[in-house]
Simulated assay, not measured.
Amino acid sequence: MAKVVLYHTDGCHLCEQAQALLQQHPDIEAIELRDIIDQPQWLEAYQIRIPVLALAHNPQAELGWPFDQQAISELIKQYGPN
């Protein structure tokens, strides 16, 4: 089971769609939500790319929107669930 990070911001309908997709994924055990407004480096890195999914144990392993269940599974398989 994987722990993931979702970079998002309030009022972002794509972020809400991404979160719902993650909540349905059978290989995800925990989702950490990081609002890009909370850290200047997150805002700089993701302001025009959100939502962005990253693996908690490997933040460089990330997916930018749009992604689907298959892409999430491939990311987890490629980089491992922990």
Rank of each mutant, 00 (worst) to 15 (best):
E16K: 15
F67A: 02
Y7A: 03
H8P: 07
G80W: 04
H13A: 11
L53V: 00
L33I: 12
H8M: 15
A45N: 04
E29M: 06
N58S: 10
I76R: 04
A56C: 14
D27H: 07
L14S: 11
N82Y: 03
Y46I: 03
D68E: 12
L22Q: 05
D10Y: 05
D38S: 13
P26H: 13
L55D: 03
Y7D: 02
E62D: 14
H13K: 07
G11D: 08
L33T: 14
Y7T: 02
I36F: 02
Q39Y: 14
D68K: 00
L22S: 06
L55P: 03
H25M: 10
H13Y: 11
I31A: 05
E32Q: 14
C15I: 03
D38L: 09
G64R: 03
I76Y: 00
I28K: 10
Q17L: 15
D68C: 05
Q70T: 10
L55A: 08
P51M: 12
W42I: 00
Q17N: 12
P66N: 01
Q78I: 03
P51N: 11
D38Q: 12
Q39W: 11
A56K: 15
R34S: 03
Q47F: 15
P51L: 12
Q78D: 06
L6S: 04
A56G: 09
A2F: 06
A18L: 11
Q47M: 15
Q24I: 12
L14Y: 13
E29V: 07
Q23G: 09
I28S: 08
